[in-house]
């Protein structure tokens, strides 16, 4: 009888700590003005029920966007850690472009509205949800076949794993391309950096200051620097 309980305990522990590795194709094509970003990458999510670690790599791309003369060209890069999330205390961590500070974002939760619309992605039955997040409206599809409240970037908190995300302005797209079980470890890599953490609100204030400095910088009469005012999140409107 003791052996039976031990087996049940071990099984439940294994099931609870099951890690999944999901690769998403990520694209950001936000070129409605010069303050947007264009980029293509693979986002790798390693996740279980309590936490997730994200790695990202840029992919070789030459793309003509909206028939413009100048193509968007980018080179491939190796995978690098980009985000850690802890679902128990609802925090996400990442680096920032300010080398002295890392981000600890505690207010990223998206209030989703679950809809009665379904589609199949990679063989999984997925349900539609809609929501707004920091300046954009989104449609996403999650699957209860993998009952983990996780997903790429900040797109989580639904009854199952998020496999597809698209902003209504079509600028942001995440599409799952592979899903597998994994033994890869999940940890917070940013604690090792020994940097001060800043909140999302502090990041946005600092970014606005940086944006203004860069916009006003004129090394020569006919040169103007343009830096983005948004990413997945709209930091501020100009």
């Amino acid at each position: 009888m003791k052996r039976f309980f031990l087996l049940v305990f071990l099984f439940s522990f294994t099931a609870f700590s099951q890690n999944y590795l999901v690769d998403y194709k990520f694209s950001i094509v936000d070129n409605k003005d010069e303050y947007g970003i264009i980029g293509f990458s693979i986002t790798r999510l390693i996740t279980n029920k309590t936490e997730s670690l994200t790695l990202s790599k840029n992919i070789d791309t030459t793309a003509i966007i909206n028939g413009k003369d100048e193509p968007h060209i980018q080179e491939a890069s190796p995978f690098a850690v980009s985000q850690y999330k802890n679902f128990i205390d609802g925090k996400r961590f990442s680096r920032t472009l300010f080398p002295k500070y890392n981000l600890k974002d505690e207010n990223y939760t998206i209030p989703w509205k679950i809809e009665k619309s379904f589609k199949t992605i990679l063989g999984y039955n997925c349900q539609k949800a809609t929501g707004s997040y920091r300046g954009r409206d989104y449609i996403c599809y999650f699957t209860e076949d993998i009952p983990i409240q996780s997903g790429p970037h900040t797109f989580d908190g639904l009854p199952g794993l998020v496999l597809e995300v698209m902003s209504l302005d079509k600028a942001i797209v995440f599409k799952a391309i592979t899903i597998e079980e994994t033994n890869e470890k999940i940890y917070n890599p940013f604690d090792q950096d020994k940097k001060e953490y800043i909140s999302w609100e502090e990041f946005v204030v600092a970014y606005k200051g940086y944006f203004e400095k860069m916009s006003n910088y004129k090394p020569e009469e006919d040169i103007e620097f343009v830096v983005p005012n948004r990413s997945i999140e709209v930091y501020f409107t100009k």
Binding site: F26, I28, E34, I37, G39, F40, S41, S56, N58, E70, A80, S82, Q83, S94, R95, T96, L97, L103, H153, I172, F203, M214, D222, I223, E224, F225, V226, V227, P228, S231, I232
Partner: peptide, 24 residues
């Protein structure tokens, strides 16, 4: 006129750093 950009960091993440410059 021609526009070129240089960037570092991860697309979509807060560490992404991009500058565009147009010269004629």
């Amino acid at each position: 006129c021609c526009t070129r950009r240089a960037s570092s960091g991860t697309y979509g993440q807060p560490d992404y750093n991009q500058v565009s410059v147009t010269r004629c």
